[in-house]
Amino acid sequence: MKEALFLNPVFQDRIWGGTQLHDYFGYNIPSDKTGEDWAISAHPNGPSTVKNGEFAGKTLIELWSEHPELFGNPKDPVFPLLTKILDANTDLSVQVHPDDAYAKVHENGELGKTECWYIIDCEKDAELIYGHHAQSKEEFIKMVENGEWDKLLRKVKIAPGEFYYVPSGTIHALGTGTLVLETQQSSDTTYRVYDYDRKDADGNTRELHLEKAIDVTTIPHHDAKLDIQVEKRDGATVTTFVSNDFFSVYKWDIDGNAAFKATAPYTLVSILDGNATLYIDQVATPVQKGDHFILPNEVQSWSLDGTITAIVSTP
């Protein structure tokens, strides 16, 4: 039967995590330091399992290797995308990620990490670190060595509904009081540059990765140029945030009945608000805030009837 693959969340405790994944989405979280929901993941550090249908209980890793037809028989050795929801109850460490070429050599063949953020919700004066002010590698190193963080780091005020594209090489960090959906390459490689001298539960400061961070940071910083497109159609407004070699990311604002056709071998959908009915071949399935699912290759058309906001990605 043609159907969506609904996925169970995988929660990750983080030093900066909180309770928003429960408070906002109603998830049954493991602790009051729950920082991440790996919502659609085939990464070995937190693979999703299928909730429904003939593949119930299978991990996304198993599906990718055993049933490539679900994904259009891809050439990628690993499922290339990872969808997360992050609860930054306090500031995240200042960090940077490598590109594919650097990660392949230095991280045992792991993918690089280009990512992007959709701000679901945030406190009134919330901000994030996006880029830096150093004009040369020498200046960057000097500011890091001297701990001139206020001078080095570029802070940006944020608001719900905004979108930020974070290519590999970009210095970045989410700030306190931010709830974000992150679409990224399927990678868990992070180089910490600064962590506010915090100590973990055992009283240890967390490891920094300055040498690798200096290797991969884009200097000077330049903002990624985005060409955001908005298309209004029957029952839906579709916003295209970004479309490149790594992923395409869209927002669906649906109010009424909206029909869709597949534009990629498979489609990842995260419902951020509201509820609706998903129709595939006239079979109805309810979807609601907090649901995450994949529309596999055999599902070439579908419709949604209701009122929802969703973030959607394709490879």
Rank of each mutant, 00 (worst) to 15 (best):
A101R: 06
S136A: 02
A213D: 00
L111T: 04
V156Q: 05
E36M: 03
G17D: 07
A259R: 14
I129C: 03
M1A: 11
D253R: 14
I271A: 10
S248Q: 06
N28D: 13
L152Y: 00
E54N: 05
H172I: 04
W16N: 06
R233P: 03
I271W: 11
F260W: 09
G169D: 05
E110D: 13
K225S: 08
R233D: 12
I120W: 04
V166F: 09
A101N: 07
R154A: 11
S31Q: 11
V238I: 15
M1I: 09
Q282N: 15
F55W: 12
H132N: 11
Y27I: 08
I311Q: 01
D291C: 05
D234F: 13
S31F: 05
D273Q: 12
W252V: 00
I158K: 08
Y266F: 11
V156M: 05
T83Y: 15
L111N: 14
S31V: 02
V312A: 04
D227H: 14
V78G: 05
E127I: 02
G161S: 04
L208S: 11
N52T: 07
I254E: 02
I141G: 00
K289V: 02
G274K: 02
R154H: 13
T183V: 12
F11Q: 05
L226W: 05
A134V: 02
